[in-house]
Design a protein around this nucleic acid. Structure first.
Lengths: 238, 238
DNA sequence: TAAATAAAAGTCAAAGATACTTTTATTTTT
DNA sequence: AAAAATAAAAGTATCTTTGACTTTTATTTA
């Protein structure tokens, strides 16, 4: 068995970075426009190459610092899955070690580090499909990767991310970290609604509180500028 | 930024292979005794190196064929997680792409392919810890990797596998595939009991059926040799 | 000060889970 | 062959959780 058939692949850390859009009240994710080949000028998930003396966790934290200048703790990041199709990258063998990051803030974006542009794309539902929308274009994630316009197998990675979040909604909704350290029940319902493909007011506030109260605790009352009774503030229990 | 700092790691496919022990009525997993360095003579999970033109899924199927001579479909295998600590292997950089396989049979084991021995170890609970037991020794998975006697970070990988199985027990108990194509409710309860650290008769049969019946369907009645009413046979719905 | 608003808090019936009992189909013992 | 033992299915009653809906409360706006 010749040793040259053993793979020594490149390993890209590919990160699905989520935050919350306070205007549209929707979750959003970060895409960058690639400055270089392969897939130059295509929109893609932020990536970096794993380095020799670095764990994937550390590379993921470094990626976030490089792309958006934020030093986040590991607690807002988790491993998603590893994508290994030998043809997923063109011309070279590269594994994608996919991560997810829940940002508690929505920072201003500055292109750089291999990107000519960087934007937030909001998650919307369209006839049962998930679509990410922003910056005068949108990508339907149900389309095959090469049809969608997104680079590589990134539509599939994002789809996997969405499904993971959806599955965890009822026992460990880490996605709520995008709302910051504290949040109202309405905000939580807005996030849930996006992943369940419904609207926040289809989810009854009282029932939502009853069925999820083990997951968060009350930490005070918000001082709202809008009319109506001020909402209570909650914090995740985990 | 010098290009030599970019990692070109080896990638091992590391597989937690489960089957059911019909004597002890317990789930068991496969360990091999390593024939070569690193970690020569240590018990370890079966592994293989990813090849250049091969997906990780394909490598995992190949590993099972090499180690136990079985051609299994992808449906009995799933990706677990990727372990990337730069110090997890000695002397070289190697990622472990961990998988789980649920074997519907318990084949005879024949050492070979880098192993001087290969055995089934049954999963048992000991004061809240999980322990794997067999072949006149046992490994406590709660101990730090280097204390347990198992190679590399394999105790941590097995622990991750157990937790994944436990979390899926109530919505997609793929682990029941180790019982073969059909199974009785008692057998299912035996598997559940092992991961929930209790005994099968602590789980009420009638209630178990009611709360899990959406997951399996009746496909007939077993012809049992033992005394008592013959049990019904079930099949997974997914 | 009254109306409008938004959210919390409460109610009640239906569905689901849990502890427990009874019945049924089989083997073993007498 | 009948009775006892066994193991599993099937059934029952109570308690808990969920889900649709109503009422109350705290705030802003008219």
């Amino acid at each position: 068995m010749a040793s040259e058939i053993i793979a020594r692949p490149l390993v890209t850390i590919t990160n699905v970075i989520w935050s919350f859009n306070n205007e549209s009240h929707r979750p959003q994710l970060l895409l960058i426009k690639r400055a270089n080949d392969p897939m130059k000028n295509h929109w893609a998930l932020p990536e970096t190459l794993l380095r020799s003396e670095e764990s994937a966790d550390a590379a993921c934290i470094r990626l976030i610092d490089d792309k958006i200048g934020l030093q986040v703790p590991m607690s807002c990041t988790e491993q998603l899955a590893t994508f290994t199709d030998p043809k997923r990258a063109v011309g070279t063998r590269a594994l994608a070690l996919a991560y997810m990051t829940y940002l508690p803030v929505t920072p201003e974006l500055h292109p750089g580090y291999g990107a000519t542009d960087a934007r937030w794309f909001t998650l919307i539902a369209d006839k049962g499909d998930f679509v990410i929308n922003g910056h005068d274009q949108e990508f339907n994630l149900a389309l095959p990767a090469n049809k969608s316009g997104l680079a590589f197998d990134h539509p599939q990675i994002i789809q996997t991310a969405i499904m993971r979040i959806k599955n965890k909604l009822d026992y460990q909704p880490s996605i709520l970290r995008i709302l910051g350290p504290t949040f109202t029940l309405r905000q939580a319902r807005e996030v849930y609604a996006a992943f369940l493909q419904t609207s926040a007011d289809q989810i009854d506030n009282s029932n939502f509180k009853k069925t999820h109260q083990r997951l968060f605790r009350e930490v005070g009352t918000a001082s709202m500028k809008h009319s109506g009774r001020p909402p209570k503030l909650f914090q995740l229990n985990f």
